[in-house]
Design a protein around this nucleic acid. Structure first.
Length: 829
RNA sequence: GCCCAAGUGGCGGAAUCGGUAGACGCGCCGCACUCAAAAUGCGGUAUCGAAAGAUGUGUGGGUUCGAGUCCCACCUUGGGCACCA
């Protein structure tokens, strides 16, 4: 009965995949023209780590990036969509140790596997721009950038207690410690004092914060919020307390940071961080033994224990006293671990009445509590709850009677005039600890000379290549870098004086590699620098970046920092790397993330074999809005396949030639087609990809109907509709779309075709369904001309039998008319 | 503890501005085709009710002619931060 039952016309995804992949490769469809003939646009997916073959998560993320890149290409932009690998990192090293091999073997074998899978998955990549961060041609420039940072004083070494992962035997950046545990392996992180390299990201705290204004509306709100909180700007005052001399210890000035200078009169003691040098400096001889035993106790705490806010407050008295610059009062100075050495000045004034932590401490050690802000709440002395809110100042000399904000201003004024304080800003952000005691990373290009100190390896001697003679156990972490074991690599002459010197044996955090890779893609083979300045001008910033929200404050913050530094070096114009960001959701199974331990993993390769690439891709995109998670247990790749076959059959059924005049076609179908194109463009511009698929389905259904029970397969509107379906589907299901395009008699590739133009006259109807409401409830529907006047519509509504019946002859109190769509009648009570 | 987001049928989800709640799909039910099945096509499917009708977007209030959409409070789930003074 229907033409689609023809057995020779069966949807065969396997042969389509086999047929079109080589054609696309040949045509180099997604290689940008890069000749300025069209506006350039740069689409980028967060590059993968080569941990094995691609998994469902990659399938989701890359399906989203592909929609954008393919859409923009159809819209006529010159699109660059490159692919590369973040190929340094721990798993490769662990695999090498286990197999007595070199990490590069495992790494590059996995890259080959993933590249083949990406090609099968038909990502719209420009394959001529591959970048691997573990290639010497790449890390040469990572080292070159390090040297520039070093010259500017933005890379420096300091001896400092750092986060240490005992399992991975390496240090971790603040950002890599999650709930006191190692982000990678989950082991409890401890503190260890080490001399380590840092990037001075704190110098950029203000700009990282301010420039988020540029990103508003283009980045997910929550990512901006997370970065804002992570940077943690706070305003307050630095107030200097004079510490009295004691025994042979001289008097000393120490500044403290507070956001509540209004509460200065409420300070009843001071606290210095127990692990800060200041504590050792202040403590009197009588109290030294107690302090040292306390410090010993503190270093043995794990980060998880330390961060537990339920924990009872601990501390020791230092034997010293400080003078409150406002009240002249003498305050005892304690050392405690609840004060952080690396925030503010490492010392605080404690105001127990109005700060919960100080109150807890005061109650533990029986220190006085003095209320200086009357908030109307219960006295903290009784309740044990500090009152941190608004109120009027009391017991505070000149500040009495002021409200909180006024008192803050006045207190700052007073200390500033007296030269004992000033307004300051503090950030929660810490410098980025970049050295790692691991092998498989970019070597830090520094040579340590006993005479010259730190000497950067001259640019013309870069890259400092990793030694290739270490294998298996030689790579194992020992608490110092495995590179130290390669004696002939470590021992080199000093580049400055020529004497015997040693290379720095640490490697860089892999987040350094990924903080500038988007710049390398614009000119991946450039040898005169990390990137060709002209190419950067042409392509940067990235117009659409796609990746997981887990990088909200790691990679994304670091990349923003790098971009700003490179801008300040005068190398690029852009100040932000990614002008738009899309966070795709995760792929779950049964409500939970897929994991080996849960045994709920779904193998991507098996899904592709079973349903085809297109059905899997379509399912990923159709299941939910891009930023939402997809639960694979809730979706139907079989249903997607069914739809694709249904769409594909339209192209098989078209019975007109390529030269038909669309304007002669069935008007009703043409209206659906043009409306679909019009709406899809708007939906694509706002990342509502799932809805675009729904609209495409409606167009497919309308076309089917026209073929089977309407104007028929030869009507020009059917050809028009089928080709629009092919073009829309090319964003989600490239193989099916290409095969449809071919069946319609057009040259490959559909991706090289132009986005269909919309005939505005087809977007408007002659008539519309107007809704008649009585008190906001729908009581009738009227088919009316679109240009009906408000008066005519009102008259028509009021004469409708349902309205007449419900009004019971009374005059309505009010009639709201929104011609031509709506009338709301409010009856008299 | 602080900050943020989200709660819509059996399920995934739609719903530019406050104006027809549930598009599209999954699942389910039915019909056609078939010896039969699959495939395909067509139709139905929020809840209660025989129907007329009533109810319905986490809960309770509010603003409005009209609220999924705006405001307030609460509940639940998810996420971020977590002794940052």
């Amino acid at each position: 009965m229907t033409s689609s039952t023809n057995e020779t016309n069966t949807y065969d995804f396997q042969s389509m995949e086999a047929k079109w992949a080589p054609v696309w490769e040949d045509l180099q469809v997604f290689k940008p023209k890069d000749d300025g003939s069209a506006e350039r646009r740069y689409v980028l997916d967060m590059f993968p780590y080569p941990s094995g073959d691609l998994h469902m998560g990659h399938a989701e993320a890359f399906a989203m990036g592909d929609v954008v890149s393919r859409y923009w290409k159809l819209r006529g932009y010159d699109v660059m969509h490159p692919i590369g690998w973040d190929s340094f990192g721990l798993p490769a090293e662990n695999a090498a140790i286990k197999r007595n091999a070199h990490p590069s073997e495992w790494t590059y074998a996995n890259i080959d596997t993933q590249a083949a899978s990406f090609k099968r998955y038909a990502i719209s990549a420009d394959w001529s721009r591959r970048v691997h961060t573990s290639d010497p041609e790449y890390y040469r420039w990572t080292q070159w950038l390090f040297n520039r940072f070093y010259e500017k004083g933005l890379a420096y070494r300091k001896n400092h207690p750092v986060n240490w992962c005992p399992k991975d035997q390496t240090v971790l950046a603040n950002e890599q410690v999650v709930n006191g545990a190692c982000e990678r392996c989950g082991t409890e992180v401890t503190k260890k004092a080490l001399n380590q390299w840092y990037f001075k990201i704190t110098d950029y705290a203000d700009r990282l914060l301010e420039d988020m204004e540029q990103l508003k509306g283009h980045w997910p709100e929550r990512v901006l919020l997370m970065q804002k909180n992570w940077i943690g700007r706070s305003e307050g005052a630095e107030v200097t307390f004079t510490i009295e001399a004691a025994g042979d210890k001289p008097a000393k000035q120490i500044p403290v940071y507070t956001t509540r200078p209004d509460t200065l009169y409420g300070a009843t003691f001071m606290v210095v961080a127990a692990d800060a040098e200041l504590a050792n400096e202040l403590v009197t001889e009588d109290h030294r033994a107690a302090l040292e035993s306390y410090q010993e106790q503190v270093t043995h705490l794990s980060e998880i224990e330390r961060q537990n806010t339920e924990r009872e407050k601990t501390g020791v008295f230092t034997g010293r006293y400080g003078i409150n610059p406002l009240s002249g009062e003498k305050l005892p100075i304690w050392a405690a671990d609840y004060v952080l050495a690396d925030y503010g000045t490492g010392a605080i004034m404690a105001v127990p009445a109005h700060d919960q932590r100080d109150l807890d401490f005061a109650r533990t050690f029986d220190l006085p509590v003095r209320v200086v802000v009357d908030t109307g709440e219960e006295d903290p002395n009784q309740s044990g709850v500090a009152t941190a809110g608004e109120g009027r100042l009391v017991n505070s000399g000149d500040l009495d009677g002021l409200d909180k904000d006024a008192a803050i201003a006045k207190a700052i004024e007073i200390v500033q005039a007296a030269g004992t304080g000033k307004h300051t800003v503090n950030f929660r952000l810490r410098d980025w600890l970049l050295s790692r005691q691991r092998f498989w990373g970019t070597p830090i290009p520094i040579i340590h000379c006993t005479d010259c100190g730190e000497v950067p390896v001259p640019d013309d001697q870069l890259p400092v290549r990793l030694p290739d003679n270490l294998r298996g156990e030689e790579l194992a972490p020992k608490g110092t870098s495995p590179l130290a074991a390669a004696a002939d690599w470590v021992n080199v002459p000093c580049p400055t004086c020529g004497k015997d010197a040693k290379r720095d044996t640490d490697t860089m955090d892999t987040f350094v590699d990924s903080s500038w890779y988007f710049l390398r893609f614009v000119s991946p083979d450039y040898t005169e620098g990390p990137f060709d300045p002209k190419a950067v001008r042409d392509w940067m910033p990235v117009g659409q970046y796609v990746g997981g929200v887990e990088h909200a404050i790691l990679h994304l913050l670091y990349s923003r920092f790098f971009t700003k530094v490179i801008h300040d070096l005068g190398l690029i114009e852009a100040t932000e790397p990614f002008s738009a960001l899309l966070n795709q959701g995760q792929v779950l199974n049964g409500g939970k993330a897929m994991s080996k331990s849960l045994g709920n993993g779904v193998d991507l390769g098996e899904q592709l074999d079973k349903f085809g690439v297109d059905a899997v891709r379509l399912t990923m995109v159709f299941a939910s809005p891009p930023e939402d998670d997809v639960d694979w247990a809730d979706v139907s790749p079989a249903g997607s396949q069914k739809f694709l076959a249904r769409a594909w059959r339209l192209a098989q059924d078209v019975a007109s030639g390529t030269d038909v005049d669309y304007t002669a076609g069935d008007k009703a179908l043409r209206q659906v087609t043009h409306r679909t194109v019009h709406e899809s463009a708007q939906l694509l511009d706002s990342n509502k990809f799932n809805v675009v698929i729904a609209k495409t389905m409606e167009l497919v259904n309308a076309t089917r109907k026209t073929i089977d029970s309407g104007a028929g397969a030869a009507d020009p509107a059917v050809r028009e509709a089928a080709s629009v379906v092919a073009q829309l589907l090319s964003l989600f299901a490239p193989y099916t779309a290409e095969d449809m395009w071919d069946a319609l008699g057009y040259e490959p590739s559909v991706s090289n075709s132009a986005w269909p133009s919309v005939d505005e006259s087809l977007l408007v109807d002659d008539t519309i369904t107007a809704v008649v409401q009585i008190k906001g409830k729908v009581r009738a529907r009227l088919e009316v001309p679109v240009d009906i006047s408000a008066a005519d519509l009102e008259a028509a509504a009021l004469s409708h039998e349902n309205v007449v019946r419900m009004l019971e002859g009374k005059t309505p109190l009010k009639v709201i008319v929104r011609a031509p769509k709506l009338v709301n009648v409010v009856p008299a009570p």
